[in-house]
Design a protein around this nucleic acid. Structure first.
Lengths: 203, 203
DNA sequence: GCTTCCCACATACGTGGCGTATGTGAATGG
DNA sequence: CCATTCACATACGCCACGTATGTGGGAAGC
């Protein structure tokens, strides 16, 4: 006891989110029974409806949590890199690696868009795009990258990353597919890199 | 009468697919009641289970049909272009345009992956990837494009295209977003284009 | 051309999961 | 110490899926 009310509430919210996250990430949103995973958390559907309104609301909360984690990871990767360009590349590689995780793949890339609509419309869950866009913006101001709209570039590259990740994750030979995908990805990014003749080639 | 048996069967199959396609494309797979759209086709769920096994089987059939149409459109676009490079670019623009259609967006990019898993695992439904990969392959043999694995390149670019399309479709100002996305997309593709100093830059 | 079989589809039923309406006990505030 | 609030549980109805079973109308055999 001595547990204050607020703390108890936060605890049950966290328990529900954790249980849902596990269920959504493994068997998927549609197959996850609310009765089952609330019971697993030692609660009932009553708590769920009280805190999140409905099943979709819970998914939103789960997605927000995961997005925050992903954004944090991306920011650290690019911040730790020796140069901005390397940070950019490694940030994207990190994104691919995250997208390889089954839980992220399932929740963020498959069930999420299906249930909540396109990710670009999610509130408080576009941290990853923003992170990459910031990096591109910084690279542009250094003149290290082609002239591209930062958000557009971020969205294109992030989409390509996740596409690559899903290709890898679902291939028969992930090792080999990964090699092909990453090589291709590097080539794609390298094409964006500014070099002296850039001005001459531009039309 | 005089209608042969085979013909009747094909007809009901087509009616079911058409009705399902409309329902899936508008209200979405999860919300579409089998009772409702089979009735709309003048049939019952019995017919559906007989022909497609279950709801997922029907979605597969719908997806196969749509993919075939998309592939056909892509092939025509790239074939009609004056040069291969232009064909490549226009093929991708066409892909973006298709991805802007709500039915395609919903079924192929959102509900499909959620229900059937990642598109790369769909049988007979990767025609679009193959089409783009063929174009890349042809460009490579002409030396018009950077050295990139055709399938990897196709997957990255197609993913970027669909990402762009969904960004556009869900933005507040699709006109302006489209401009930004397409500009960025052209820059990305242009980066893949081979030019004389390519060899010097390569490491 | 009649019978028999077969098969495309309809009908009937059970089950499970979601959402809502309502109940309850414990913590808060005066 | 009492009233209120609020977090959560319980109970109920409904809808949709899947399955098991029925049936009618062509197709095949003679």
């Amino acid at each position: 006891m001595a547990k204050p009310r607020k703390e108890m509430i936060a605890e049950t919210r966290a328990k529900l989110i954790a249980a849902a996250r596990r269920a959504f990430g493994t068997i998927g949103y549609a197959e996850a029974s609310m009765d089952d995973f609330t019971a697993e958390a030692g609660l009932t559907r009553g708590a769920l409806y009280h805190h999140f309104g409905d099943k979709r609301g819970l998914l939103q909360a789960v997605i927000q949590e995961i997005d925050a984690e992903m954004t944090e990871r991306l920011n650290r990767v690019s911040a730790d890199a020796p140069t901005r360009w390397q940070g950019f590349v490694e940030e994207n590689v990190a994104y691919v690696e995250m997208a390889l995780e089954p839980e992220i793949q399932r929740i963020m890339f498959r069930d999420g868009p299906s249930v909540l609509g396109d990710p670009s419309t999610w509130p408080n869950a576009n941290g990853c795009i923003a992170a990459v866009a910031r990096t591109i913006s910084a690279l542009k101001s250094e003149g290290a990258i082609a002239d591209i709209d930062p958000e557009a570039g971020a969205r294109l590259i992030v989409a390509a990353s996740s596409g690559a990740a899903q290709w890898i994750a679902n291939s028969e030979d992930p090792k080999e597919t990964s090699r092909r995908a990453v090589d291709g990805f590097r080539t794609l990014l390298e094409g964006l890199r500014a070099h002296e003749d850039e001005i001459r080639r531009a039309v």
